[in-house]
């Protein structure tokens, strides 16, 4: 209840903060009811707003898939690239113009199957970019095939009796490949995910944020896990926050506990720093350090 004697200040209606970042002429979007990808876009929009970055210097690069549509919906300089090749495009952008803030926004299949090779090498070389992976544990757009992230025993169209392929543990892969920032949250943890994206954007080097997200249409339906809201409530009840956890311990079992948190936050020289330092050592004053 409001205190009747207090002075009330009327505040004008505020816009939905995500709208200024979206191409509203493309709404409604194609994502299914209860799909979590849109929720991650809200987190990204808030993080970008809070980061105070100059939006003209931000580029979004997506690959193919349901999450790959993000680039097309964001009202920023965006690239919807070929399957798995978001990171090579992003690397090229960053090399050509080191002043850009380059963000790769894509799904688990695109980033870790088709583009898995690019991921580990960009992390190894510490190319300065932020990679946001919406991990729904399956291939969405192509029809529910088992992905490199699908937990053992979960069903997909290609494994109707359940998968027996050991999945990647994405934070461990990112950590051991050399990423300077690694965090995992779910679409239930909207405030944490927003903060993680903001932190990742502020890091220099290869930063990685994984967001576990419901795919009610394929993953949940094939595995009889209910709708998007059921999966959100599952995340709520089964996530364990362990900041600083050893990434080798954060692998995911089918409907098991999900370890979330910020796992890695360190400094390493970036690709461009290493190149400039090395070539200055070799050529001395003959070499002009590359600044774009």
């Amino acid at each position: 209840m409001l205190d009747q004697n207090a002075v009330e200040t009327e505040i004008p209606e505020k816009e939905n903060p995500v709208e200024s970042l979206l191409r509203m002429d493309r709404m409604p979007h194609i994502w299914c009811p209860g799909c979590g990808i849109g929720t991650t876009v809200n987190c990204f929009a808030r993080a970008l707003e809070q980061s105070k970055l100059d939006l003209d210097s931000v580029s979004i690069v997506s690959g193919i898939g349901c999450t790959g549509r993000v680039a097309g919906y964001l009202n920023l300089d965006s690239f919807h690239t070929t399957h798995g090749r978001a990171i090579p495009f992003a690397t090229g952008l960053k090399l050509a113009n080191p002043n850009l803030k380059v963000v790769v926004y894509s799904g688990d299949g695109d980033l870790f199957a088709i583009g898995g090779n690019h991921f580990i090498h960009a992390a190894r070389r510490n190319v300065d970019m932020t990679v946001i992976c919406v991990n729904n544990l399956i291939y969405g757009m192509t029809g529910g095939q088992v992905a490199p992230t699908t937990p053992v025993t979960a069903k997909g169209t290609t494994y109707p009796y359940g998968s027996y392929d050991p999945p990647f543990n994405l934070p461990y892969l990112a950590d051991s490949s050399g990423a300077v920032y690694v965090a995992r949250w779910t679409t239930y943890h909207v405030r944490h995910a927003t903060k993680a994206i903001k932190e990742a954007l502020a890091r220099r080097g290869f930063s990685f944020v994984e967001i576990i997200s419901p795919c009610p249409t394929l993953y949940s339906r094939r595995n009889r896990l209910g709708d998007g809201l059921d999966q959100m409530n599952f995340y709520k009840e089964n996530s364990v926050i362990k900041n600083g956890a050893d990434t080798k311990d954060v692998g995911m079992d089918f409907q098991g506990k999900i370890t979330v948190g910020k796992f890695v936050d360190r400094e390493r020289k970036t690709y461009r720093q290493l190149m400039n330092e090395h070539l200055t050592n070799v050529f001395g004053e003959q070499y002009t350090p590359y600044e774009g």
Binding site: V18, G38, T39, V41, N42
Partner: peptide
């Protein structure tokens, strides 16, 4: 609600 809504339909 706005932060959760995947369809940008409420804030």
């Amino acid at each position: 609600c706005g932060l959760y809504c995947p369809d940008f339909a409420i804030h």
